[in-house]
Amino acid sequence: MSIKAVDLTYTYGAGTAFEQRALRGVNFEIKDGEFVGLIGHTGSGKSTLIQHLNGLLKATGGDILYHGESIYQEGYNLRALRGKVGLVFQYPEYQLFETDVFSDVCFGPRNLGLSQEEIEKRARHALRLVGFPEKLYGKSPFELSGGQKRRVAIAGVLAMRPEMMILDEPTAGLDPKGRDEILGQIERLNRQHGLTILLVSHSMEDVARYVDRIMVMNHGELAFDGAPREVFRHYRELEAMGLAAPQITYIVQELRERGVPVDDSITTVKEAAAAILGLLGKGGGEET
């Protein structure tokens, strides 16, 4: 069970002066339960790519296979697919419209044609999963803070009970605390509820901390695809793409260049601290 992209190509405004090749032959497969980060510089095609996965954009070439079936075949139910592959857009402002938060979250499950009881149950559950305070359920979504809006938007998609969630920069414009909370909740959805997650982000730092696998986009192509430690080994190439590995990678590399034998597969501050303390002979059990 998986979602798979085969030679995916997409061109905006084909045949006009605005022609823009946004995807050039992208191949990958995401298995059930994976937590994948999608990284790339501005305009590298991340948002374009993810809109293919639930059929909002139709590829100009190539194919998408969901559980082995092409979503482009005649008579494929795209609306059902969108209930299974939940997509949360970058700006919550584009989807909030109801008079209160709770009704807004009900919009998705209502479109699935469920009973009123089931709709409300799912909405309540979804709001609880994203940690939205119950006393604000009746508030207008337009009066919320940025972080709260983001949560409502995520809950609005979560309430459809998708098998996979795609989140486009869910932490853009949030303060460090809000960012950590949202990412923590997303991580819990993956670890505890088994949701497959595709997280789009600019920040290597964020991604390195949570995901099992990183895909790097560069000018519409998939440049790297692998575990964070493998991807960060290419930190020089990443830099050439206008990205950067997490800061800790640089410290580790610098130490190695100076002859300190730390493991170069370290990706987080915690691991690095443990390794360095270990070298200093302190056992490495403590945390910084």
């Binding site: 639930n54 969108r82 989807q95 919009f107 998609v157």
Partner: peptide
Amino acid sequence: IMKAQMARGADFESGNVIRRAKSMIPILVP
């Protein structure tokens, strides 16, 4: 906006005139 609502299962194409007009609300408000 249409894409964001379609991702939540919104349907703008089927139904009678009244239903279609109502389905515009999730687009018009944002």
